[in-house]
Amino acid sequence: MSLPSFLAQSLNGLQYGLLLFLISSGLTLIFGVLGVINLAHGSLYMVGAYVAFVVARATGSLWLALPVAVLSGIVLGSLLERFLFRFFYKREHLDQVLLTFALILLFEEGRSLSVGNDFYSVPIPQALNFSIPIVEGFSYAAYRFVVIGVCLALAAALFLWIERSKMGAIIRAAAEKPEMVDALGIDPRRVHLTVFAVGTALALTAGALNAPLSSVYPNMGDNLLIISFVVVVIGGLGSVTGAFWSALLIGMIDTMGKAYAPAVAGLAIYVLMAGVLLWRPSGLFGQRA
């Protein structure tokens, strides 16, 4: 294990972990506040990546892709909540599973109809297509630093919003004691719509940010969906802080494992999750029930 390769893997782990946070924070909020198990969350990530691809192909640059992904996330999330999910809050979890599974299929077919089934790479913007030297014999891609920076900025904004704004306080309350929020006369519909739209926008943003690194291809959100559920469970359902630390932990373990112990890398995070669930079912950061 040489120092440059260790540094590179650490940074990769950090970047992957932050990306996982963008996806799983939306998942944990939607689960915590709306009580919905959204299997289609991975598809939303996929939609974001394809939005970036389409924008980059049409305009020739990636700069516009991020704002477009955020906006389309808000619009898509609002539409999904208003016309579909709203009618499923009172249904059983298994019905939600069925609904969101159908959505996965429809998103995949929509992608296939509009863009096709080919594997596409998304070019890194010219201005960022260089490497930054870190130590002797090791330099790191500038675009990856940008991804890390944007993710950190978004995480900070999300925390500020949840901890400091009035809507954030309502969301925290709704995740903990929904009856109280109802009792206080707050219109839950606006809260639900906001949470779903923000969660969706975060997933699309993650997809768009990662598109130049991962390329875009069918079913690309599949694997991330399960990993994100692992993050959410380890962090504690509904806890954004928990999702942050557990996303970093999982990102690091997964990246390091693949680099240095490939035979057990796949196993490791599931062993961790089973261990956490059996030892402390409410997650590492969740409140004890």
Binding site: I37, I226, V230, G266, M273, L277
Partner: peptide, 23 residues
């Protein structure tokens, strides 16, 4: 465990068996 946690624990053990054959 029960409910959603049971779902996730069984997922974890299932994936462990999966990775034994995969890796």
């Amino acid at each position: 465990t029960s409910g959603f946690f049971f779902l996730m624990v069984t997922l974890a053990f299932g994936q462990m068996i999966f990775f034994i054959f995969h890796d």
